[in-house]
Design a protein around this nucleic acid. Sequence first.
DNA 1: CGTAGTTTTGAGAGGCGTCAAGGAGCGTGG
DNA 2: CCACGCTCCTTGACGCCTCTCAAAACTACG
Lengths: 239, 239
Amino acid sequence: MDAHSIKVACSSCNLRELCLPMGLSPDEMSKLDSVITTRRRVKRGTSLFNTGDRFSSLYAVRSGFFKTCITTADGRDQVTGFQMTGEIIGLDGIVNDRHSCDAIALEDAEVCVMPFDQVEELSREFTTLQHHVHKIMSREIVRDHSVMLLLGSMRAEERLAAFLLNLVQRLHARGFSQSELILRMTREEIGSYLGMKLETVSRTFSKFVDEGIIDVKQRYVHIKDTDALRQIVNQQTSK
Amino acid sequence: MDAHSIKVACSSCNLRELCLPMGLSPDEMSKLDSVITTRRRVKRGTSLFNTGDRFSSLYAVRSGFFKTCITTADGRDQVTGFQMTGEIIGLDGIVNDRHSCDAIALEDAEVCVMPFDQVEELSREFTTLQHHVHKIMSREIVRDHSVMLLLGSMRAEERLAAFLLNLVQRLHARGFSQSELILRMTREEIGSYLGMKLETVSRTFSKFVDEGIIDVKQRYVHIKDTDALRQIVNQQTSK
DNA sequence: CGTAGTTTTGAGAGGCGTCAAGGAGCGTGG
DNA sequence: CCACGCTCCTTGACGCCTCTCAAAACTACG
């Protein structure tokens, strides 16, 4: 499928405490190594998989940044999530044996390929892994619910504030700054995810800048006042 | 926890082809019977579980109708789903060992209690069950993504049309009419789910009535022109 | 038969979408 | 190295959809 296959081992991966192998014993880890044997490179702008593709594997983001999005027959388009290192992509494909969204790299990326039938086999053997797979899926469900809350009940400023806080929080968990970040996605992609138009995203960024809450220079964002952002999310001015 | 415990068997349940035991062999089914031994009655307006409750079991709706909703500290509220017979409630609890939403019966209901540790144990034994559990979780993820599409990109009429079509489709799969239904939830609950205010829900219903697409008398809805509804969903007038 | 909850409908306001134009950043090629 | 074109971003003006506030009608239930 792809010439860019690389040998790898979870046991020596610096993401192992964020990713699928979290909490496994050394013994279990080495078994997992034998299942997750390949990586795949995905160039910026190209897709890891598309809607309708046969489902065979889950993917763990090793490096880079992805978006997942669904596109309907009538041309509607919705970004359903952004995935960074250590996060799992492809859970949507299990139910119908085909993927129901596109996964697109927003920068040159690398993923670990995890053949799902082998993951299932191994998780019949190891309770720890089994439970962890369940947790990963449950976490995705809970995350989706909070996005539904955002889309269903927040106004533009609240959405963008919540979005920025979520991004830095996840980046911070990966060792990056709590206050500075580079956006890997366009204003349009942010807007699609947050249910608003790109102009509104841009205007809202400008408003935050005017209020001294953040600095923005294109894709670069510096959060000067995290508490102010938090307050905006919780202000409940309501929509 | 609840005095209303009743002995039951999946193998003799008329929902077994919709519910968890779907596709199991008779042998596997009888093993499942020994795990799912109790039902629980939930009175209209009361909750099956609340946010923060310890997670121990999944629940299959045996009869009745539920809503799940998340409530934030600042009083924001979002209905994340409506569940009818054969559907599974509680997947949100797996990740943190505590439920992250409330599940509330919209009419007197009965659920089958499925202790999750035992479901996990059994699904280590039976590939069929294991895979089915994964599918159920994946289906929930895919469903959530389509709600995100609805909330992120549709206008009020489109949302309500999509909602009605989804409801009758699920009811039809349970042997009910394709064109008539009784809403089990209030306009406010519909609005919360669809990200709009109850007045807008009401107005949109009235608009559909004026256009001759449906009849509405309180909770009773008669869909006179399914194609018109489908057209509304797909018209992509855009938001 | 009264009361609380739910639904409908109206009038007005405002947030966000739409349309449009201009600017900034960046890669490509002369 | 600069010019050029492309994509992305910003900002303004205007209009509409949906929210807000309010009141009345209807239903259910005690």
